Computed example of a mutant assay.
Amino acid sequence: MYELPEIRWIVERAAVIDAIVAFANAIDGKDWQKLRSHLADEIDIDYSEFRSETPRRITAEEYIKQRVEGLAGLRTLHVSTNHEVTINNNTAKCQSAYQIYRLDPSREPGQNRLDTAGNYVHSLIQTTGGNWIITGIKQTVVIVSGNPQVHGALRDKP
């Protein structure tokens, strides 16, 4: 039989993973309102390995705007796995592996895909209502395959 603190940790761990997976599903479904519900008002982002951008803090609205513009016209599938969760009171970190498939149906076959894989570290806080929301995202890229021009954030970059 589990002691209450261990059961509580299991429940909170599942809630953290649910938040990460719901975040990814919201992007794939282009459900921007749902995506917003999983983000803090400001987010520390580090996509420097993929986009060559300086890590910075941005608003949730700016983060969503970047997704809307970068993924316009694309079909995507985000796969999230290998979740390692650490929880400290009302903060959490989730290290995970990801694979993202991007398809631009308007491009010629062979030039219409950009797939990436690597690792994420998501930082989260627990709200007073008990929900976990994302306060930070760091992406590490291990594999890039396909046409970078498929992704809006990479178009017309060397």
Rank of each mutant, 00 (worst) to 15 (best):
M1Q: 14
M1Y: 12
E3Q: 14
E3A: 12
E3H: 13
E6Y: 10
E6R: 14
E6Q: 15
R8P: 08
I10V: 11
E12W: 00
R13W: 02
I17L: 02
D18H: 14
D18Q: 15
D18E: 15
A19L: 05
I20R: 10
V21Q: 03
A22Y: 08
F23L: 09
F23Y: 15
I27N: 02
D28A: 05
K30G: 02
K30A: 12
W32Y: 11
W32M: 08
W32D: 03
Q33P: 06
L35A: 03
R36N: 13
S37R: 13
L39A: 01
D41I: 04
E42D: 14
D44R: 14
D46E: 05
D46Q: 04
Y47L: 05
S48A: 11
E49N: 06
E49L: 07
S52C: 07
E53L: 09
E53V: 11
T54E: 15
T54F: 05
P55I: 01
P55H: 02
R56M: 08
R57Q: 12
I58T: 11
I58G: 05
I58K: 06
T59R: 12
T59C: 03
E61D: 15
E62L: 09
Y63F: 15
K65W: 09
R67T: 06
V68C: 07
E69P: 04
G70C: 04
G70P: 05
G70H: 06
G70D: 07
G70K: 08
L71I: 03
A72V: 03
G73T: 10
R75G: 09
T76I: 08
T76H: 06
H78T: 04
H78C: 07
H78M: 07
V79S: 13
N82T: 10
N82S: 14
H83N: 08
H83Y: 04
H83R: 04
E84P: 02
E84I: 11
E84Q: 14
V85N: 00
I87L: 08
I87T: 05
N88C: 11
N89E: 15
N89V: 04
A92H: 03
C94I: 04
Q95V: 09
A97T: 10
A97P: 01
Y98G: 02
Q99G: 12
Q99I: 08
I100S: 04
R102T: 11
R102M: 14
R102P: 01
L103D: 02
P105N: 04
S106G: 07
S106N: 12
R107L: 14
E108F: 03
G110N: 09
N112K: 06
R113L: 09
R113S: 05
L114T: 03
L114Q: 10
D115G: 03
T116R: 07
G118D: 05
G118K: 04
G118Y: 01
N119I: 00
Y120A: 01
S123W: 10
L124G: 00
I125Q: 14
T127M: 08
T127H: 10
G129H: 12
G130I: 04
N131E: 15
W132S: 00
I134C: 09
I134M: 11
I134Y: 00
G136T: 09
G136K: 08
K138V: 10
Q139W: 05
V144W: 11
G146C: 05
G146Y: 03
G146T: 09
N147F: 05
Q149P: 07
V150E: 02
V150A: 02
A153I: 00
L154S: 14
L154H: 07
L154N: 12
R155P: 15
R155W: 08
R155D: 09
R155S: 11
D156F: 10
K157M: 10
